[in-house]
Design a protein around this nucleic acid. Structure first.
Length: 340
DNA sequence: AATACTTACAACCGCGCATAT
DNA sequence: GATATGCGCGGTTGTAAGTAT
């Protein structure tokens, strides 16, 4: 048995609100309040609207001190930081931005911020992978077919990298990038999560000798039997390097791009020590440091792994277990580093 | 100028949770 | 404890306005 509808669907108006309807609703609520019963409210004032529709209209447009559009750079920053930290919990994000509604922020993210994040990658993404059509005549077609999925995965990947416990966002040591307001928000969020959210738990790197690694393009070169061509090289602490189990290529390690994130961050920070952030740091760091990264979803070259093409930002738990870190990471994407 | 396509945003829908009965 | 009801949230859809062809 299904749930009873909240209103008589046949007798309620849908679609945009007229000025008259707005005036009726606003006048009533200004005078009497909502009465803690949205379902009954439209009948009281003679509106042929669903109570939920009235609630939405009031909360998003009619109630006082609502701001629309004109998002500032600082607001962009806050939205980005919180989205990376907690995902699409728009109501919590909205609570940190006075005058903004969750719906407004959600729309803003979906229509602008997300594209801003991906925008530069569209061009940079004409990478060796897609430019290699001479090697793989079907490659171009495959890529064009999967552009949409690739785009979503790219953004997911970027966010995943930052959500991953080995990213700078979970290392308080590199948090000075956050301004005091953001630090306060993180503290608030920690209290919301009762310290159980692995995304915002401190993660202290263990001392280690470090491994010198090179980021490279795995399959393309393997297929040709050539030595993988590195496109980035850096030293990564032991605690961040997780051996990949059960692989024929025993010298391959799954790593994050945290070091390039960190380098980029440190470079930026050395030029900008002000408390306020003058640039959209999250995007700047990503655009600056990751454009040379080559990566693609598992199912393009790993038939043994489950494909993860869903737009799922659910955080992985148990990140303190290194094998779990790797499994989670490797089950979604394949970025390899060859040990020198 | 007409049409197709894209973008931005308002609004709807269904589900999970909290509370009342 | 079981059920009914309403609220709040996040995902999705509909559509007007803008832009490209």
């Amino acid at each position: 048995m299904g749930r009873a509808p909240c209103c008589d669907k046949a007798n309620v108006k849908k679609g945009p609100w007229s000025p008259e309807e707005d005036a009726k609703l606003k006048t009533y609520i200004d005078t009497y309040g909502t009465g803690n019963n949205w379902i009954a409210l439209p009948q009281k004032i003679g509106l042929r609207r669903c109570g939920k529709s009235c609630r939405l209209r009031w909360l998003n447009y009619l109630r006082p001190n609502i701001k629309h559009g004109g998002f500032s750079e600082e607001e962009d920053n806050i939205i980005c930081s919180l989205y990376i930290s907690i995902g699409s919990r728009w109501s919590i994000i909205a609570a940190q931005l006075p005058g903004r509604t969750d719906n407004d922020i959600k729309n803003y993210w979906n229509t602008r911020l997300k594209k801003k994040l991906l925008g530069r990658r569209k061009n940079s993404h004409i990478s060796p992978l897609s430019a290699s059509s001479s090697r793989d005549p079907e490659g171009a077609e495959d890529n064009s077919l999967s552009n949409s999925a690739m785009e979503r995965l790219q953004l997911h990947m970027q966010l995943q990298n930052l959500q991953n416990p080995i990213s700078l966002f979970n290392s308080p040591a590199v948090w000075p990038k956050l301004n005091p307001l953001q630090e306060k928000m993180i503290q608030t969020l920690q209290s919301f999560n009762d310290n159980s959210n692995p995304l915002i738990q401190p993660m202290i790197p263990q001392p280690g000798q470090g491994q010198n690694v090179q980021l490279c393009e795995p399959k393309m070169d393997d297929e040709l039997g050539n030595t993988p061509i590195p496109n980035a090289s850096f030293t990564i602490p032991d605690s961040y390097v997780v051996p990949k189990p059960d692989t024929q290529q025993s010298n391959m390690f799954g790593v994050s791009t945290f070091q390039s994130d960190l380098d980029e961050f440190l470079n930026n920070n050395s030029h900008n020590n002000a408390v306020g952030m003058s640039e959209f740091d999250c995007f700047k760091a990503m655009e600056g440091s990751k454009d040379n990264m080559i990566w693609w979803p598992n199912d393009q070259f790993d038939t043994n792994s489950a494909s993860s093409s869903s737009w799922d930002s659910t955080p992985a738990h148990h990140h303190h277990q290194s094998d779990q870190v790797y499994k989670d990471f490797a089950s979604r994407y394949n970025i390899y580093a060859a040990v020198i």
